[in-house]
Design a protein around this nucleic acid. Structure first.
Lengths: 344, 344
DNA sequence: TGGAATAATGTAAGCGCTTTCATTACATTA
DNA sequence: TAATGTAATGAAAGCGCTTACATTATTCCA
């Protein structure tokens, strides 16, 4: 007996390539390629035919093949240290806004804190994944930046300053200065700084501004009043970090009259701590995330979205004009007064 | 003394390729490739030699070339609709956690709302950028999902349910039910639902739970008590959206006794609205973002990090075992009681 | 209406890797 | 020592695309 049963081979829907399309459309692969690259010289008729075929089988050029052949990928990579942060989110949304107007795709690469931090960053460049890079809140030593420069790839730094690259940042010293100065102007003398990981670059700058404001007002600087929480997750820029720090401040140096804060999110924790300890002092946050408005939190505004937007623009400009002079853009932070600093 | 002069080298340092390394190390390109792919049969001596050379010139295989030749890229792509959202952030951090243990790179692709939403999503798959995809809060019709399935690529859905893919979600109906039930249990009768864009899938489900709870308690359902703000940016899941909605509720239906909310972030706005109008009613949020704890906000907890973590695991499992049975994982939301529902 | 100018298409050589298969070098064993 | 097995390496054929450059169709004007 003859077995006539046919095995239905699970038909692997092999991805179609440019050859398949070319064949079906009766043209050469070059023409197909042209169609997908809006190259000028393709007649309207062929274009339509190719597009029809491509659409029918769901064809689209593969990114890796394109990338290899053309040495471009129409991709911008945002490199950020740990993602879950309000500052990044805002910056990112500015980047998106700009990208929407251009034909670039955004990829986000996360580097994790640790000893091999620089290696991770360098690794990203080595892979040559993108045409340009946005480094957000990545802080390196000058010689490390210099080393990255060797890769000859367009890079724009956000929230960091280095002469060799286009950078977009905010004057952190000035921001903290303004906040502290405001408190001093309101008559407070013993002002604490709610800090975070000491080695963090923004913290360093903000402390400097805080100290300068005290000094300019003829007030003594007391290291004891610079306090951070013990939870160092995300460098201490967390609700918990703020809660812990404020608890310390209120219990260990009860004579404190006011407080400048390294971030809004920490301020949220600090507010809770004050509530729990049933003691309220004026407080100024930092960043002006959307939340701050709804919490009545006075703060120092950083134009985060603008920064993202502008940095992206700068980067794209460099694609088209690599010889463009390197630019450093520094925004001025703005003091926003709300309920948390009202005199009671 | 440190030399701090300006860079002037214009010379594009040509990226070195596998050939350069092979030549300098005196081996064939195949061997170099093997070294970079921890392939077994390379003698320790050659391995070291190759690595030394590669390190010297800063060589690393190019992703596009690798991707083309091997048809893999060791990359997972997370597809999300608009990035700046607390829910995504938390899920993302769960994904990162899992990824850290494996050797995959994460890329994030943003789709923007609009008429061509589906096209954007499909486009991502067409490019074949990654080996697997995590779709976060992407809601499509069944036939659309079916269409994506044709691409034969590993996909895991987060915060969505569809039988054809592995999915990880939370029972939104139950979550809203629990919240509403709690309020009813506390004696409130006129309970509002602070909503967002009506067509949003989570909103649909949550409303269903809200209605069911009312019905089960023998309470009437009043469409007028389901309110959203007018600002629809991010589908209305914003502080502002919450503020507007609560303002409406309090002014148009002043007899309302309590409120269930579609998200914590909206609850923040709602809290402010209550404060501004000087009227407080019990409120329950949704999500349990970190902030909620520090704001004393009762809420429905979604295990966001766990979801991200588990979904990633599921996806990676599928790489190694494509024939694995498709799984639907549904988490149970948890009611977290805090100050915002305390009886005054 | 011929022929130059121009538009449309095709040919083929890579892009930088991976991978199969063949080859070589070396260690074992009888 | 010859035969055999195994580990290490190399040669070469693609992967799916872009892009000079070459070739063929069209167009246009004197």
């Amino acid at each position: 007996m003859i077995d006539t049963h046919v095995f239905k081979t699970k038909k692997q829907t092999l991805a179609s390539t440019i050859y398949d399309i070319a064949k079906k459309a009766g043209v050469s692969i070059a023409t197909v390629s042209r169609v997908f690259n809006q190259s000028s010289s393709v007649s309207e008729r062929t274009r339509e035919k190719v597009l029809a075929v491509a659409n029918e089988v769901g064809y689209h050029p593969q990114i890796h093949a394109q990338g290899l052949a053309s040495k471009k990928s129409n991709t911008i990579m945002a490199v950020v240290p740990i993602i879950s942060n309000y500052f990044f989110m805002e910056v990112l949304s500015g980047i998106q806004d700009k990208l929407l107007q251009n034909n670039y795709e955004l990829n986000i690469f996360n580097v994790t804190a640790g000893t091999d931090f620089f290696n991770q960053v360098e690794h990203v460049l080595k892979r040559r994944w993108a045409e340009g890079y946005l480094f957000i809140s990545i802080h390196l030593k000058d010689e490390e930046w210099a080393r990255l420069k060797k890769y000859g790839v367009p890079i724009t730094l956000i929230d960091e300053y280095y002469e060799g690259f286009d950078t977009v940042s905010v004057d952190n010293v000035q921001g903290a200065y303004k906040a502290t100065q405001n408190l001093i102007g309101n008559g407070y003398r013993r002002i604490a700084m709610l800090s975070a990981l000491e080695t963090s670059k923004p913290i360093l700058d903000r402390k400097e501004g805080y100290v300068a404001a005290l000094k300019d007002a003829g007030l003594p600087f007391d290291e004891e009043l610079v306090v951070r929480g013990d939870t160092l997750y995300r460098d201490g820029f967390t609700e918990r970090g703020g809660y812990e720090a404020m608890t310390k401040i209120l219990t260990m140096t009860p004579e404190v009259e006011a407080c400048v804060c390294a971030s809004d999110i920490q301020a949220v924790g600090a507010l809770k701590a004050m509530q729990d300890l049933n003691k309220t002092i004026p407080i100024i946050g930092y960043d002006d995330i959307e939340l701050a408005e709804y919490m009545g939190l006075s703060t120092i505004r950083q134009p985060m979205r603008d920064m993202g937007y502008f940095a992206t623009q700068t980067l794209i400009d460099r694609f088209t004009n690599p010889e463009k002079a390197i630019s450093q853009t520094i925004y001025t932070p703005e003091l926003i007064l709300r309920g948390s600093t009202d005199k009671s």
